[in-house]
Amino acid sequence: MGNFTETKENLLKLGFMCGVFVLATAARGDWLLVVVYLFRDYLQDLFPVSENEAKTDHVISLSRWRLQNLPLFIIFSVIVSFTMFWGMAWSWQWYYYIKRRDKSEEWKCQPNKFLSPKDERHEIMLGSLNMLLGSVASGIISCYIMNGGHTTLYYGILDRGLLYFLLSIPCFFLWIEVNAYYFHRLFHNPYLYKKVHKIHHRYHQPTAFSTTAMHPLEFTLHQSYLAIVPFVFPLHVGVFITLLLYVYYYGMCDHSGIKMDALWPWQPSSMFHDNHHRLFHVNFGFNSFLMDWLHDTLDKADREYGEDVFGGRGRPVKTGSR
């Protein structure tokens, strides 16, 4: 009986993790890109582009940019993204924030503290707007790749040698981590914080919908340093997709408001970023402690933080203030 219960719990955890992966890729509109990058050759054989299609002026124009059938890609990307994101996010919301609301001390990073209905509506609308932007961009890039557009991703592990393949893993991770930290910290500059990033910090108790609920400029910037990689840096498609899903997964966990332990020793728990929303100008990293450790911007018990305390290092704590 004990083994059965343990197996059931492990299967539920695995299912939950898979659900978070789906939710994360849908939230950023990149699910279609993942499919296209993984199965590009197969899909191109399955849905070949006919040269006879380029007969009308608008098709000729799209063909010049390798964007045949672009409207279909965009419509498909948007519809499926919204279906997956709203479906998964609302099921998550129902299971935790509605069904177990009276037991928040068991699962919530900030027990008994919830967003106001007004802020909940705001994060859903803003997050959906950014998901729409991401879905359209994903549809355009996917269409370009499917029509034979240039990409630096390669598919054979030994194409560039085993050493290159192995070194590309930490290099790509550091590329993501460094960009995420410095761009995030840039938006905590007093001027940019008040004009742009404060929108995201409106959600003091973040939920899954908060993941993409930010100023569209900020959303676009964070997506750009990921989207540029397949067109500039030679990278194995498996490395690119795996790390992309990895950072998306933890981005969703970090904003869930739900207590989640890290799977890896360098990875902070969900409390780390939840504390960023609670304390404001501290804990800027997403996928590891590395950059915060290097810049001394980790949350410390002997410091106090607040929306008016910029710089990432807080100020000496006053007795009873935390």
Score class of each variant (00 low, 15 high):
G2V: 12
F4T: 12
E9D: 14
G15A: 09
G15S: 07
V22C: 05
V22K: 02
A24N: 02
T25P: 01
R28T: 13
G29N: 04
D30H: 11
L33Q: 08
V35L: 11
V36R: 00
F39Q: 14
D41H: 07
D41C: 00
Q44R: 10
Q44N: 06
D45Y: 12
N52I: 10
N52P: 06
T56C: 05
T56V: 03
T56Q: 07
I60Q: 15
S61E: 14
L62C: 10
W65T: 05
R66C: 06
L67D: 07
L67E: 08
L67C: 08
Q68R: 14
L72F: 15
I75N: 04
W86P: 00
A89V: 08
Q93N: 14
Y97V: 02
I98F: 09
K99F: 13
R100P: 05
R101Y: 14
R101W: 15
E106W: 11
K108P: 01
Q110V: 11
P111D: 09
D119W: 13
M131N: 06
M131D: 05
G134N: 07
L153C: 01
L158F: 15
D159T: 03
D159F: 00
G161T: 02
W175P: 00
I176D: 10
N179A: 04
Y181S: 02
F187V: 02
H188Q: 02
N189M: 11
N189P: 00
N189H: 14
Y193P: 00
Y193H: 05
Y193N: 00
K195R: 15
V196Q: 02
I199S: 03
H200E: 09
H200D: 08
R202A: 10
R202G: 09
Y203L: 06
H204P: 03
Q205V: 12
M214D: 04
H215S: 08
P216D: 08
L217C: 03
T220Y: 08
T220N: 09
H222N: 08
H222R: 09
F233T: 04
V239S: 05
I241N: 01
I241P: 00
T242L: 15
T242Y: 13
Y246M: 10
V247A: 05
M252D: 03
D254W: 01
D254G: 01
D254E: 09
G257V: 03
I258R: 03
I258S: 01
D261Y: 13
A262T: 08
W266H: 05
P268Y: 09
H276Q: 09
H277W: 10
L279C: 07
L279A: 04
L279F: 13
V282F: 07
F284T: 00
G285D: 06
S288K: 03
S288P: 02
M291L: 11
D296H: 06
L298E: 12
A301K: 15
A301N: 13
E304F: 01
E304M: 06
V309C: 08
F310P: 01
R313Q: 14
R315Y: 08
V317H: 05
V317E: 08
G320E: 08
G320S: 06
S321L: 12
